[in-house]
Design a protein around this nucleic acid. Structure first.
Length: 285
DNA sequence: AGCCAGGCCCTCC
DNA sequence: GGAGGGCCTGGC
């Protein structure tokens, strides 16, 4: 089924920029799991071409339109970020890369897993969680598993997560799953909350600090001003704006500085800078 | 072979 | 309130 595209869109950089961890590339198709479906998708000249199972494409289309943020006016966002010369290069280079609107629970667990880790390992961890505790889905002879619900993880012994390679993150995931399962924090409701209120709720969860919370806010909770400061972003901003790669500014202070600097779409600036830096480093390696 | 990772949390000052 | 060390494990 085709979803027409009438805005800048770059499927590959969108899915391979470290914001989501379940998409596998088999040129020209991407295979992933979302909304408890296997999704097979590629980009054509002016459309997204996808199929899904077990649900019908007609049912998935609006969900994917939302997931890919196709109603977001990317040109307007670029225009608002155009005041910054150093940013312009990254935006031009990866024009069409979008911020996904992911399922919040999966996004939360993914970024709890990201602590002191790397993308290959995070990817492996997430897949292991699904394989062991999620429901299998089959598309022909291709099999993946849905991301387990909070209830599925809430009663686990953390050691069962350690056994599949999650390390100390196991001790964060289980209590957080319980908090969500018991509805003490309603992730979906955070989409309607202000940035500050949603940030405060997320920070209260085990294993969630300022950085992880901002990832969840940006990639799943409709908060484009969210600005996750990881070591790379900290380094880039230190070099560019503070003339010092060992900038003393704390992560949180730098986040607030950046939000003032880049404005209400600071998160887009963040993601273009992050992606640019990451690919640049990979090229040098 | 080791070092260090897309942090968080706790302790101690 | 903020600096420093510990933490699982595995990429590179």
């Amino acid at each position: 089924m085709l979803i027409p595209l009438n805005q800048p869109f770059d499927l590959k950089n969108t899915l391979m920029s470290g914001q989501a961890f379940r998409w596998q590339w088999d040129d020209p198709w991407f295979y992933g799991v979302a909304f408890r479906n296997i999704i097979k998708v590629r980009q054509t000249a002016n459309a997204l071409d996808f199929s899904s199972t077990p649900d019908k494409e007609q049912a998935l289309a609006p969900l994917l339109q939302n997931y890919f943020g196709l109603e977001v006016d990317l040109e307007a966002i670029y225009a608002s970020l155009n005041k910054d010369d150093r940013l312009r290069t990254s935006i031009q280079r990866y024009s069409g890369m979008r911020i996904l609107r992911q399922e919040p629970w999966e996004c939360l667990v993914s970024f709890i897993c990201s602590s002191a880790s790397n993308i290959p390992r995070i990817t492996k961890n997430i897949e292991s969680i699904c394989d062991n505790f999620g429901t299998p889905i089959r598309m022909g002879n291709y099999i993946r598993s849905a991301f387990p619900s909070p209830e599925d993880l809430a009663d686990l012994d953390p050691s069962s997560l350690r056994d599949i390679g999650l390390g100390y993150r196991a001790e964060y995931i289980v209590p957080t799953a319980r908090t969500i399962a018991e509805n003490r924090v309603d992730l979906m409701a955070l989409r309607e909350d202000s940035y500050d209120a949603a940030l405060e709720s997320l920070i209260s969860l085990d294993g969630v600090g300022d950085k992880v919370a901002n990832c969840v806010l940006l990639f799943s909770l409709d908060k484009p001003e969210a600005f996750p400061v990881d070591v790379w972003i900290h380094r880039v901003l230190g070099e560019w704006y503070f003339n010092n790669h060992n900038c003393k500014l704390s992560r949180q202070k730098m986040r607030i500085w950046a939000q003032n600097q880049f404005g209400r779409y600071a998160g887009y600036a963040n993601h273009y800078l992050f992606h640019n830096r990451r690919l640049q480093d990979k090229k040098l390696a």
